[in-house]
Simulated assay, not measured.
Amino acid sequence: MNTKYVVIIQCNMAKNRCSGMRCTNAFYEKTDAFKNYNKDTKYISFTCGGCCGKLVSSKLANFSRWLKKYTDVEKDEVKIHLSSCMSTDNAHYDRCPNINYLKQIINKKGYENIVEGSVFSKKSEKLREKGIYKKYQ
């Protein structure tokens, strides 16, 4: 599959303290979870909307509407990344307790290509290997 669009969904709580720069840089520099995308892949990010993540439904509906109106990109050409702040145990807090619910919403909106993670901190990865942070995948 040729991915034409990447959507990064960030934790709304984390977004209160995070600019999203590391995820954005990783996308544009094609590192971490974005290393296999080509230079023509487009990118957008938004938050889950807050716990429990139910606002993802309306945000994806809005994205889908604009995608259809202004592009020829199909939903199967879109990958949804649940940011590392949502999908991993890290220094700030554990994995999002609503992650499976979010995946159900994303699937219900017609998006099947879901990736857990965006940026992979070397320090956090070492702590996962030591068992200090939990592993989920």
Rank of each mutant, 00 (worst) to 15 (best):
R17Q: 00
K35P: 08
C48P: 01
E74T: 13
R22H: 06
N38Q: 14
K39I: 15
C52P: 12
G20W: 05
C23R: 03
F27T: 04
K59R: 10
V56D: 03
Y28D: 05
K68R: 13
S45T: 03
G50K: 06
K69G: 08
C52N: 09
D72C: 00
N12S: 10
C51W: 05
L67C: 14
Y43P: 11
S57D: 12
W66Q: 04
A26C: 11
C11D: 05
K30N: 15
K30L: 15
Y37L: 15
Y37N: 10
T47G: 10
C18P: 00
C48H: 02
F27C: 08
F63R: 02
F46R: 01
G50E: 03
G20N: 03
N36D: 15
S45G: 03
S19I: 00
T31I: 15
D72E: 10
K39H: 14
K75E: 10
N12Q: 08
F63S: 03
T41A: 14
Y28T: 10
M13G: 02
V73N: 01
N16H: 09
T31W: 12
K15M: 06
K68M: 14
F34P: 07
G50V: 07
G53I: 07
K30G: 14
D40K: 15
S64Y: 07
G20M: 05
N16V: 07
T24C: 10
F27P: 04
T24I: 13
C52W: 03
C52F: 07
E29Q: 12
T41E: 07
A26D: 08
A61H: 01
R65P: 00
T71F: 09
K54D: 06
D32I: 14
K30T: 14
R65E: 10
K69P: 05
G50C: 06
K54N: 05
C52A: 10
Y70L: 12
K30I: 13
A33P: 04
L67K: 12
K59P: 00
M21I: 13
G49F: 03
T41N: 07
S57Y: 12
C11T: 04
N16R: 13
S57N: 10
K30W: 13
K69N: 12
T71E: 07
M21A: 11
C23K: 02
I44H: 02
S58V: 03
S19D: 00
S58F: 04
L60E: 01
E74G: 08
G20Q: 04
L60Y: 02
V56M: 11
K54A: 11
K39F: 15
T71Q: 08
T47Q: 03
G53P: 06
F34M: 12
K30D: 13
T47K: 04
T47F: 04
D76P: 07
A26H: 04
C51H: 06
S58A: 00
V56K: 04
A61P: 01
Y70M: 08
G49H: 03
K75Y: 08
V73K: 01
M13A: 10
N12R: 06
S64E: 12
R22F: 09
S57W: 02
A33T: 05
C48W: 01
C11N: 04
T31Q: 15
N38V: 14
E74Q: 14
N38P: 11
V73S: 01
C23Q: 05
W66F: 10
G53V: 07
S58Q: 01
F34T: 08
